[in-house]
Write a protein that binds this DNA or RNA. Structure first.
Lengths: 231, 231
DNA sequence: TTGAAAGCGGTACCAC
DNA sequence: GTGGTACCGCTTTCAA
């Protein structure tokens, strides 16, 4: 159980002040015009004793945690799992740590999670919002916290979102089938009331209407086995 | 952008010291024999201004972060994704926050991740270790940090592990097929050199040997399409 | 070139 | 019953 070493320990050992050590360790040696020799000595010693800064203390002082809270519907879902994993890698490269949590698409759960993240002083938020989270997202923004929505968004409330082109995708897919000579084309979807689903439906409908074809939709949620068609 | 309120703000408003506020907010009012009325007043005010403790400051002072670092092979993998999600829920119920990271089953990556977690002062670790992480796991333990391995473990190094009964499972499955009259039973596996795979293989072999049946194994990694048998 | 010291927001010991 | 205050480890201003 090697004892934690702090910048004071190394300052004492080097006969300098903690400030000097802090400067050197943060690459501000040049800026603060600290002698090259001193800098070398400190760096060498820090490496020797395997100094690791206490991020907690740093965060308390700077007010930044380099932490991003990420809310998805379910981390175990392949779509969100992959998204989480990829974003995690990118974040880490940029020196950020992602905090994940699953909302179950439940706004109450999501609210609780946001509270946890706020308690942890997350610097920013990446959210795949469940329906009903409008207020909370707005509250975050009003408090000056960076928020980006993904996979879904709220119509009417101004946010930065990254979403697939659901409308265009459904439209193109439908057109493609039409070009291949198909006439009876159905859309299997979920009636979740979520905006991304609605966008797909609209894309499909628009393509069908342009060709004056009948609209056919399967509701995957009410017919899990996909046994019958509605409308 | 409502300003962050601290216990000092509350203390000033209530004309008491920050110490008193801290006691009340931490349920130590009775223990510290603080008057019921004062307690009520402070609680009410805290609620009114929606006070949220700064966990960073709390962590710095107490040395505990109520955070657990979790290393899996791949968060996007359904097995690990589900494990992550379930553990996350339990942890949160207990007031802990899980930090996830994917090792890609690469010890170098895992080491870097452990460094990040240590920097974040994680209170404990849950690890599905890649081969070659023995030293690092031992180092954690020597530093007095709680570690639990899951899904795999290292033979010979003493750790707390939670793993499936791979040997017993393979043995029972094989026996089951034998009881149903099958004689040529093959094991499709991966030659990963990982202990859990070896355990399964041993369970299968033992069951086959007890009946004097021929050992047949498919190596799923060298024959991804599972086209031919070896041995 | 370098260092003293004031915080960041809490906790908890000890005194009154 | 309540409060003063030192301290957790680090950053940063200001002075020397």
């Amino acid at each position: 159980m090697k004892k934690k070493i702090s910048i004071y320990d190394i300052a004492r050992e080097m006969n300098v002040s903690s400030a000097t050590v802090s400067y050197v360790l943060n690459g501000k040696a040049a800026e603060k015009r600290i002698s090259k020799t001193l800098e070398q000595r400190i760096m060498a010693y820090a490496r020797e004793v395997d100094y690791r800064p206490n991020m907690i203390a740093k965060s308390l002082r700077t007010g930044k945690t380099r932490t991003i809270g990420m809310l998805v519907e379910d981390v175990a879902d392949p779509f969100f799992g992959n998204a989480a994993r990829i974003m995690e890698g990118i974040a880490r490269q940029l020196g950020y740590q992602l905090l994940f949590a699953s909302t179950d698409n439940n706004p109450a759960v999501a609210r609780g999670l946001l509270d946890v993240f706020r308690g942890a002083q997350a610097d920013g938020y990446i959210i795949a919002p469940p329906p009903g989270l409008e207020q909370d997202v707005q509250a975050l923004q009003e408090d000056g916290l960076p928020v980006v929505l993904f996979d879904r968004y709220f119509v009417g409330i101004p946010t930065t979102n990254v979403v697939a082109d659901n409308f265009g995708g459904a439209y193109k897919a439908t057109r493609h089938l039409q070009h291949n000579g198909h006439r009876r084309i159905a859309l299997v979807t979920a009636e979740s009331g979520q905006v991304q689903m609605g966008d797909r439906l609209r894309g499909y409908i628009q393509a069908m209407e342009e060709e004056d074809l009948p609209i056919l939709t399967f509701n995957a949620s009410t017919f899990p086995g996909i046994k019958s068609a509605i409308s």
